[in-house]
């Protein structure tokens, strides 16, 4: 059962990463325009380098 000592912290840590990532996306307005974001990916304009 010693394996639990590693596995539980790891699972909690991974869950925490997921939560933090989600909170980051909410805070940076990434859910304001879901339709636009789905369409923007089809745009050729910033294919070579990211939009500054």
């Amino acid at each position: 059962m010693e394996v639990l000592a590693y596995l539980i912290p790891i699972s909690l840590f991974l869950g925490g990463i997921g939560l933090v990532a989600f909170l980051y996306t909410v805070r940076s307005n990434q859910y304001d325009d879901p339709e636009g974001d789905a369409q923007r990916i089809l745009n050729n304009e910033w294919d070579d380098h990211p939009k500054p």
Binding site: G15, G18, L19, L23, V26
Partner: peptide, 19 residues
């Protein structure tokens, strides 16, 4: 946004506790 944050925290926590 606040509601969504709370929903997310409750969701992640309940998944872990359910496990």
């Amino acid at each position: 946004r606040e509601l969504l944050m709370r929903l997310a925290v409750a969701g992640f926590a309940s998944m872990n506790v359910m496990l």
